[in-house]
Amino acid sequence: MLRIESLCVSYGDAAALTDVSLDVADGELLAVIGPNGAGKTTLVNAVAGLLPARAGTIRLAGENVTGLPPRALADRGLALIPEGRRLFTTMTVEENLDIGCYRPAARGHRAEGLARVYDMFPILAQRRRQIAGTLSGGQQQMVAIARALMARPRLLLIDEPSLGLAPIIIAQVFEIIAAIHKSGVSILLIEQNATRALAVARRGCVLDCGALVATGTPAELDARGDIRAAYLGGGH
């Protein structure tokens, strides 16, 4: 589904990602974990076309999409649940969802999509006319997830969905992510909360200082003493 080869991204002169290669198979949920400032958001934004790649290639379903604008990537089935949710905070919940299915290809499935996400998040159905910026953090995360689902993605990029949420909400969010994955969507899941992320993933990568330091199944990662000590310890 997604194949990243030797990706390098920098902000001005400061390199944020160096030589990162990874792939997400069709229908796979790959977790990328790593500490603050490791370059996780940079990775997601580069894949979504929001940041230019300095070197390397990004392929979606075999096609080289390096350097394509975000809109073209959306047309190819990619959707983003960004870090910090980044809702359209002055618009209503339903208007946010409408932008999710803005592309002509998704627009035709609006009613179906709304029924699905309102079924998944009944609270959003009740709040559909509320301004998104006035929702609680957990509800905002639900809108961000629902907005991305409205786009009918084949590959979903999820950046730190647990950020700033209460533990009980985090558990719900991860259940939803597992359910979306089960419905056949490929997912690249970024998390600092390694325990949670590796619980829903078959495979994980560890990113630190802009480079991949390990890849493997949760059990393999856990078996490596150095990785466990440095990255898997603090499952908040």
């Binding site: 979504a48 076309g49 929001l50 604008p69 975000p70 809109r71 990537l73 959306a74 047309d75 990619l78 959707a79 983003l80 960004p82 980044r86 809702l87 359209f88 905070t89 002055t90 618009m91 208007e95 409408d98 932008i99 999710g100 803005y102 592309r103 998704a106 627009r107 907005r147 786009a151």
Partner: peptide, 23 residues
Amino acid sequence: TWLGKALRASLDNPDIAASFGVP
């Protein structure tokens, strides 16, 4: 209208709007 929503989304958060196909 779709146009109006897209315009407001684009003002609110252009990057994210673009990633959902807003021109």
